[in-house]
Design a protein around this nucleic acid. Structure first.
Lengths: 188, 188
DNA sequence: CCGAATAAGAGACGCACCGTCTCCAAAGGG
DNA sequence: CCCTTTGGAGACGGTGCGTCTCTTATTCGG
């Protein structure tokens, strides 16, 4: 078929555009991603993009869930708190590796809102792991200050976003063994 | 004197430029700060800027220490660990209030290096406070994992940069009372 | 104290991308 | 099957980048 006659519409077109965003991110990174570049790669016009998203930040925000899964859908259950938390942190690292660190930093700078739900979700996840540990008798209580519950997620995100060192697995172990477990086990 | 004949040079000119950067940051923020805007405000040419700094990020990075002091020069010494740490965290909040949150996020996105020394300094500061507390007999030891020592600084920076909520003083108290003090006091 | 070297001030230049607008043709619904 | 909606393509004015050029003030070496 030399003459491709079809013209995409609606959801199918949108999916192609978001694919193009991912390819563009992989190729040039967030900083040099342009609306024109995405439009060209998706073989469409800029107007089609602007009809859906008001700017680059919104476009990229829309593209992220198009390929990444939700953390909450992959809750580990190893039978041990330490391993559970480590597994969740490893999922976070994996997810950020897919997305790329400069995308997150770029969005932090450009997107005025950056959905707080994305961050709040970690509290629920960790609380679930803690409650299971209580049931198993591993720790005395899951009734901990909110800040204690989210501590491992926040420390990891600090490393991933602010400090630019690549996140070594040993660092996750430090977070869990030196900070989190001491806080949740020694309570009376 | 209607006819101002003098032409600034070297350090004096540089100081005027960095002042102009601060004024520009205050007026339009980091995102809309432009080299042309800074040059115009400083009443000089763009070439003079590019002769000194290769781009916007470097220019702003150079401007920051021009007006902010160094945290290490204002070490508190209240006689109590809790108050010392709170005082340091309050200094951090104050400093970020001067600089503006969008400047930090902008630099994180655009500056490829963001001097790690800026971050490493907090470890030294907190370690000093801990050692004093040991001398006073408040805590058993200052020989703690690096991650434990820096925990309050990292949690605060997480809030300041990633979460966009304004940093309430109550949050500093949470960090210290719920996380830091439990970690450094209960040790054998 | 003078002439050469250096740097400041000013702005033109080509370029890239923004966000808007225009035009035509394809799709698809009633 | 016609008519409304949407897609594809690109022109447009505007803004800021980073470079370059030109004139003029300042400084420094002799």
């Amino acid at each position: 078929m030399t003459g491709e006659q079809t013209r995409r519409r609606g959801a199918a077109l949108e999916a192609d555009i978001l694919d193009a965003v991912w390819e563009e991110l992989a190729e040039v990174g967030y900083a040099r991603l342009t609306m024109e570049g995405v439009a060209a790669r998706a073989k469409t016009g800029k107007q089609v993009l602007y009809r859906r998203w008001p700017n680059r930040a919104e476009l990229v925000k829309a593209a992220l869930p198009h390929r990444t899964g939700f953390l909450a859908d992959q809750l580990p259950d190893t039978g041990e708190l330490r391993a559970d938390v480590l597994a969740v942190l490893r999922l976070m690292v994996e997810r950020q590796r897919e997305i790329g660190p400069d995308v997150i930093r770029g969005l932090l700078a450009e997107a005025p809102d950056l959905d707080p739900k994305v961050f709040g979700i970690m509290h629920d996840i960790l609380l679930t792991l803690l409650r299971r540990a209580v049931e198993r008798g591993e720790i005395p209580t899951a009734d901990l200050p909110r800040r204690v519950v989210t501590v491992p997620a926040q420390l990891l995100r600090y490393e991933m976003v602010i400090s630019r060192d690549p996140v070594a697995d040993a660092l996750l172990v430090e977070i869990v063994d030196d900070v989190f477990l001491p806080l949740v086990t020694r309570r009376g």
